[in-house]
Amino acid sequence: MLDDEPGAVFLVKRTLSEFDVSGFTTSDEFLNALDTGFDCILLDVQLDEMSGYEICRQLRAQRQTENIPVIFISGDTTLSGRIAGYEAGGDDFITKPFDINELQAKVRRILAQQGYRRELISTVEESRQAAFEAMTHSAEQGEIVRFMEQISFCNSQASLADALLTLLSGFGLKAVVAFWPNTEDVSDKAAYFALNSAVSELEIELLLSAQHERRIMEFGRRMIVNYPNASLLIKNIPDQDVSRYGRIKDHLCVLLSATEARVRMMKTEAKVKLQQVLLLTVTDVRAALAHIRDSQAEQIRSAADMRQDMVIDLQDQLLLLNLNASQEGGLFELIERYVAQIDDSYREALRWSDALQPIVKTLEDIVQRRMS
């Protein structure tokens, strides 16, 4: 957190006490501390030495800080201010005075996204490392390298299966690939793919029966390679050619390991997208409830003003009706009773709005726990 007002730094550190927050009041202190590594940076826009926008541009220009999320905190509520923050490379924008819940929610979301980003990068590196360690300079391994590059662009099981089966066909292998569902998602189903042919019921039964068996199962000229998210059935293993058989066997493990990594990556990406949608939905609901509450409070104030105006007008009009004191009192009592009932209706609506706040907080907590 960088803000030249010590009070603002103290407030943010207290608001984000669940995190390890470092606070700085000068640009030099902040820039010198970047080597310690940060997961998220909060930048005040209006600084004495240089603007937060300029500091953000410096961060984006350096390799070690180019991917650290930056949240601007500013008293500027104009659209041009937000655009300037975006152009400088900021990831989010909070206006002063900020809402504590909003700041906490945005920081949690940014940190969760960083965690998933690291997981994706780690998964990619693991799959690439596993692949390149097993490769030599043969023509088949060159095809495998191209396959590794190709599957990084696959965003569906069908496209991933097509890439794998096409490569295996080039090796002279007939194959069936199965993708297994998430165990926690009952709506997710297994999917089976073959190249230029339908997958038979027997092949499905073989893959299902062998799913939780050994990593590699061989029977006759057939072989099944199992991973948690994907399995591969080869129908014509070249078991008579010992040299090619060993090479193909090694290739299959590498290929399915990379396929497994890509499947896990796609599931993680889908989970991140879903959780981002859920968080945004909860934020929208919270904002809508706040708007309703403000509107209801304004209606109560407006009703009170209208009541006073009505009493003044009635007093003027009653002079013309020539009512006695008892009749005037009865009329005012009747009006007051109905106005009180209207006020009670508005206050009941406020209580209803307040009753929904714990529900929204619970939903937000559930989404945050799923992201952590």
Rank of each mutant, 00 (worst) to 15 (best):
R244T: 09
D91F: 05
P97S: 07
R215N: 06
L43D: 05
S243V: 13
N236C: 01
L252V: 10
G329L: 13
R337W: 01
I151P: 07
E298W: 03
D250G: 13
E184K: 07
L356V: 15
I292E: 13
Q315F: 09
C253W: 04
V225A: 07
E125A: 11
S200W: 11
T259L: 10
D239K: 01
G329R: 13
L34P: 00
I73S: 09
N101S: 13
Q276L: 14
Y346V: 01
K361F: 08
V21D: 08
F132V: 12
R337C: 03
L16R: 00
E184R: 05
I366V: 09
K96T: 09
D4V: 06
A134E: 08
S138C: 00
L274D: 04
Q275I: 06
S27P: 04
L79Q: 14
T136I: 03
S302E: 12
D76T: 04
Q276F: 10
D35F: 05
Q58A: 02
I110G: 02
L11P: 04
E126A: 14
P228S: 11
S27V: 15
L164Y: 01
I94Y: 02
G37M: 05
L356N: 01
S138W: 06
L255H: 05
N101Q: 15
E298A: 14
A158T: 11
V45I: 15
K189S: 12
A191Y: 01
I151T: 04
I94A: 04
D316N: 08
G246P: 00
E140M: 05
S372Q: 09
A194Q: 02
E260K: 06
N155L: 12
A178Y: 00
K174P: 01
D365E: 13
A130C: 06
T362R: 11
G172K: 05
P238L: 11
Q211T: 03
K267N: 13
A175D: 08
D305A: 12
E336L: 00
L279V: 04
F24V: 02
L314K: 05
A290M: 15
Q211I: 10
V263F: 14
D316G: 10
R128C: 03
M371Y: 02
A88G: 03
Q308M: 05
S27Q: 12
A134T: 10
D365N: 12
